[in-house]
Design a protein around this nucleic acid. Structure first.
Lengths: 339, 339
DNA sequence: TTGTATGCGTTATCAC
DNA sequence: GTGATAACGCATACAA
């Protein structure tokens, strides 16, 4: 059952007493090749389970057919779901996807980037770590003519890069508006790491919803954290200790962080925790298991973000869009009301 | 900044007025090459950012340096965590990992397998779908001399394949024993799909723990489900309706399914739900957010399962272990008591 | 309609 | 110490 001599074009050619190029053309359905010849070649190829050697094709075409993707963490369902969109479309177009996790660590992100570069990926999709401020390791790619698409997390100050983003402004606006419409006057905002664009757009959505509905803004109602539960607790303490200015609702930049917040409030027996109406980004499937779930979630449509990223990347790879013609694509969020 | 002529060995050779082979040897630190020559070559290579062409090397070495991995779903933290172990070790050894999700669907698993075969992966790691009973699509690999390692989910009846498994017998035994030691007499067992080896080992662990502790077995206390919440509800109905034989504790084959079960019991206002002591496989990080969390979890050490799988696979690829010398590796579980 | 020759970028064998 | 040459497997321009 196990073949020792590999089945190559040459091998087929010898068996068929034809030239290698005829075999090659026959398999690739060249119009100049005789029908009968094609049949003979294709039949033998099938019979001997001929598989074209991908490395040889890659060498010839000067392509690896590999797409690199760097992201912080696959335990975050946003990224896992975004992968789904990427793989789907990449696969359909003959590309394989190599996933590399940075664990939100700059050093590992740099290593991932260098490794993917050495492996000559044809394009890169990246969600930067929370510490990424210098982009030399990512700029290498464009300098070699390899397109890069930043998705979700990206250098917000930089216009000279391709971006695919969730429209977190709109998402946050909608969430805040929803809470206002339910009669809340004191809506707290719990924001994420300031380095990355986690913060600005969402915060602006929050602010604008307040303004558009004639609610006053109070800096007492805003606090920032990151992915460390300790910092979330500090932030929550800040928001909920001023007894004269107690929030009755809360918008958080990310769902697990919101859960940490609620967990803390419960742990200190904060009065009427269940009456605080909360909304976070994510729409995590675990919500259905929570005893006091958020009243709604901001669905970020990660699959769509992923699909848009890979579609743009392939257009750049295929030179359908010039690599210097920087694109920005926004994917709308959707408010999902629970229960 | 953007190079148009690619930096190849030939290009370097011309610049340096040397032969291509000398440049190649210099870069690979051949002992026969003059020290000064090496320096000149390596310096220019660094200066011009020379990157050896992976496709050419792959062609020469008859390797793709690609590892394929087929698994049901990345939303399952077990698999996501197992990936971590795989990637870590694969990367260190110069391999890239291509992940392919079957979504527990046989048809998609077959497509994934064929795609990975076409891409000539050097080895395959696979957790089969819940419907996989025919293995032709996976046997292709071994027939071409490409090693396959089954991990976690595998054809339990088949000894002629390489396996890396969590020791679910031991995990389930430990969990059941733990509940017995806490005084429970009626411990229910909620098992998974019967096709795959989800079931046998765990069930045996349960049974053996009962037996070793002189507790009677009752088929009333055993029910089976899969990943469909509907079926879980049916199973739970079976377990908790016989009022004379009501379980006071429950062991479940997978944590999210356990959560579905508890959620259902709560939804029907089952009396004293919080007093039912539950244990499931997984040790999901979301547990800390649950108001009535399981009393303990069976930690399956997925990272270690992944690491063992890739280590075995690389040994097979490198012919350090004969491909017909079938290996079976067990990774112990650990009972994690919460709170 | 088919075959010959060349090149993709690298490594390895053998001369020199 | 260094260099010419072949080979890996495939695709294609050109010749026949």
């Amino acid at each position: 059952m196990m073949n020792n001599t590999p089945v190559t074009l040459k091998f087929l050619a010898e068996k068929l007493k034809m030239s290698v190029s005829t075999v090659s053309k026959a398999l690739n359905n060249y119009p100049t090749i005789n029908e009968y010849t094609k049949q003979r070649v294709q039949e033998l190829a099938r019979e001997l389970h001929f598989l074209p050697n991908k490395s040889a094709i890659n060498l010839k075409e000067k392509k690896s057919h590999l797409i690199g993707i760097i992201l912080p963490n696959l335990l975050d369902h946003f990224f896992t779901r975004s992968i789904y969109g990427v793989e789907q479309f990449a696969t359909q177009n003959g590309y394989n996807v190599i996933i590399s996790q940075s664990h939100d660590d700059l050093e590992r992100e740099i290593q991932s980037a260098n490794r993917l570069l050495r492996n000559r990926v044809d394009g890169l999709i990246v969600a930067i770590s929370k510490n990424t401020q210098d982009f030399a390791h990512l700029n290498q790619f464009e300098n070699m003519g390899i397109p890069v698409v930043y998705y979700t997390r990206n250098p917000s100050f930089n216009l000279n890069c391709h971006k695919v983003l969730g429209n977190t402004f709109q998402g946050c606006y909608q969430a805040t508006k929803f809470l206002i419409d339910r009669g809340h006057q004191k809506i707290a905002y719990l924001g994420g790491p300031k380095m990355i664009n986690f913060t600005h757009d969402r915060f602006n959505g929050y602010i604008n919803a307040l303004k558009d509905n004639q609610l006053p803004f109070s800096s007492q109602l805003v606090a920032y954290t990151d992915f460390d539960p300790e910092n979330t607790i500090s932030a929550i303490k800040k928001l909920f200790t001023d007894t004269e200015n107690v929030p009755t609702a809360l918008v958080a930049f990310k769902e697990p962080i919101l859960f940490d917040a609620i967990k803390y409030l419960k742990s200190i027996n904060y009065p009427n925790v269940n009456e605080i109406e909360c909304i976070g980004f994510g729409n995590n499937s675990f919500i259905s298991y929570l005893s006091s779930p958020p009243i709604a979630s901001i669905e970020e449509n990660p699959e769509s973000v992923g699909t848009n990223a890979i579609k743009l990347l392939l257009q750049l790879i295929n030179r359908e869009i010039d690599i210097r013609n920087y694109q920005k694509i926004m994917v709308d969020c959707k408010l999902i009301v629970h229960g």
